[in-house]
Amino acid sequence: MNTLYDVQQLLKKFGIYVYVGKRLWDIEVMALELDHLHESKVITKEEFLQAKLVLKHEHRIEENKTKDNNI
């Protein structure tokens, strides 16, 4: 799992589609959904950790874009 698309596909397997309208918010909601899947033990620890890493990376990119646009 290397991209945000991969995380979306993982969530899609469980019928979870996330679209809030702002990419940063989408990433945050996906992280919450991953937490719930992990707590329910329907995804492996490896899937969970890899997906969280991808989301953290994408979240950082989006925050930097926001900061750059505000300067």
Rank of each mutant, 00 (worst) to 15 (best):
I16D: 00
E47D: 02
M30Y: 07
R23D: 02
L11K: 04
M30C: 09
V18T: 08
N64V: 13
H57L: 13
D26Y: 03
I61K: 07
I61L: 10
G21L: 06
L49D: 12
G15Y: 00
D68Q: 09
I43P: 00
L10P: 01
K65Y: 10
A51N: 05
L32M: 11
R60F: 08
L37P: 01
N64H: 15
L11C: 01
L34T: 02
D6I: 13
Y17W: 08
E33I: 04
N70F: 00
K22D: 06
N2T: 10
I27L: 13
L53N: 15
H36V: 08
K45N: 05
E39H: 14
L34K: 05
K13V: 01
F14V: 00
Q8I: 09
E62G: 08
V54R: 13
E62C: 03
N70G: 12
E46M: 06
E47L: 01
T66Y: 04
V29L: 13
L37W: 05
L49E: 13
H59L: 05
V20R: 13
F48K: 08
T44P: 03
H36Y: 08
V54L: 15
F48I: 04
I27P: 12
E28C: 09
V29S: 12
M30G: 06
E58S: 06
K12T: 03
V29Y: 11
E47R: 03
L10T: 01
L24P: 06
Q8T: 12
N69C: 11
K12I: 03
N2K: 13
V7G: 01
K41S: 07
N2I: 15
K41R: 15
E63V: 08
I43G: 00
V42F: 00
V18H: 10
G21I: 09
F48P: 12
I61S: 02
Q8D: 04
L37A: 01
E62P: 15
